[in-house]
Every structure is written in structure tokens, then in C-alpha cells.
């Protein structure tokens, strides 16, 4: 049990809570999704710090699962919910 790492995790937790405001009033859907992605990375960091703080190395595996599955949500969001519209002015079209 190391209280220092738990304090670091406790510092990261309000970052999630403050980021909630961007979900509540993001103008576009992508702003909300980007905030959810930041939550995922913050959660990975909190899990790593808690794994040292609680002395439980199993938490590294949970962080690994989070890191694996974090990309899935954003990819699905781009492919299913938020395509580019018909007019392709910039960039390459998404296949």
C-alpha cells in the first residue's frame, strides 16, 4: 500500500469529472467522442497508478484490456455514426 500513488490517482480522477462538462455541451458529436477517449486514457493511467498503490498487479491486465478496446469505440463511431457527407472537399474519401 503506497499512499503516494493513490494520491496521484486521486489527482487524475477530477480530470475525468471536469471533462464531463465537454460531454454535456459539446457542439458536435465528435467533441463528445474525443472526451470519451480522454476518459479512457485517464482510466488507464488511474488503473496503473492504483495497481501500484493497492499493490495488486492484476490491475495491469485490466488496463491492458482498456487500452485494447478503447480504439474500438472510436472506430465504430467514425464508420457508423459520423461519416463525411456527400461533398468531399478535402482529403481522401473514407473507403
Amino acid at each position: 500500500m503506497s499512499w503516494m500513488h493513490t494520491t496521484f490517482a486521486l489527482i487524475l480522477l477530477p480530470a475525468i469529472v471536469v471533462g464531463m462538462f465537454r460531454i454535456l455541451r459539446g457542439p458536435t458529436a465528435a467533441d463528445r467522442m474525443v472526451t470519451a477517449q480522454l476518459f479512457g486514457t485517464c482510466g488507464v493511467a488511474i488503473l496503473l497508478l492504483l495497481g501500484t498503490g493497492m499493490g495488486n498487479p492484476v490491475l495491469l491486465d485490466i488496463a491492458l484490456v482498456f487500452a485494447l478496446l478503447a480504439a474500438l469505440t472510436t472506430m465504430t463511431f467514425i464508420r457508423r455514426t459520423w461519416h463525411g457527407s456527400g461533398k468531399k472537399k478535402h482529403g481522401h474519401p473514407i473507403p
Binding site: V65, F66, L69
Partner: peptide
């Protein structure tokens, strides 16, 4: 931690894309 592993895989990883679809 085992329930947390299942929650991480299901709650954050799989239901999100399912809901978006």
C-alpha cells in the same frame, strides 16, 4: 478485479460500439 475485467471488456469496450451501431 475479475468483475472489473469483465466490466472493462463489456461495459466500456463492447456495448459502446453496439449502441453506436
Amino acid at each position: 478485479p475479475d468483475v472489473a475485467l469483465a466490466e472493462a471488456a463489456l461495459g466500456a469496450g463492447l456495448t459502446g460500439p453496439l449502441f453506436l451501431s
